[in-house]
Amino acid sequence: MPPETDAQSTVDDKPVHGKIFMPFSVVVTIAMNGLKIRFWRSIVTASGIFLSIAFFSYVVTNLMLAPHLTSDERHRQTFLAIISVLVAGVGITNSMLMSVTERFREIGTMKCLGAPDSFVVKLFFVEAAFMGLTSSAAGFILGLLGSLLLLAISSPGTDFSLPKIGLVLLWSLMVGVFITFGAAYFPAQQAAKMPAASALRTDV
């Protein structure tokens, strides 16, 4: 028996065509909420960025402020600074990669519920920007304090030049945010482009 279509249908007759529009503020709200409800996971990711940048800022502060560095010591410190950037790169990339890939399934689900690809990318970018900025700033402070403390003890009379410290801050934030963004970019693109069916099939 063919089914009779319900006359008192409460399903809205809606056009199939249309675009999803989400104001940026909504993306920010969802991203912040996501960081909050995954609090401990976010802390772990943030710690990776935080420690990397603390190391970086420690080395760079030392390099900039320490008086009478021999050229040999200067080279060693520069080498350390480069290493610290690489360490930060690997550490942060690993953290971000994990935090995106472990959510493939969730992304697949969100796509089924109407999340456009651009939303997925923006979501991870906002998260990365926020994590990168706050963790780098905190890391900068730890590295700076550590370095200043050691300098104050080992070489009294060091000139704690504010402009130079400002420069260290700038570098720390730039390195932290740049690497975090870079690390989020590829997995976020991949997650956004992946057909929802494949994203749902992954289980991490």
């Binding site: 199939v16 109407g114 999340a115 749902l200």
Partner: peptide, 19 residues
């Protein structure tokens, strides 16, 4: 994006694993 709109407004999905 239009596909996202369709998934948002026209189809509701239910899965074996709830998701």
């Amino acid at each position: 994006n239009e596909l996202a709109f369709l998934r948002c407004h026209t189809i509701g999905y239910i899965f074996q694993t709830f998701n």
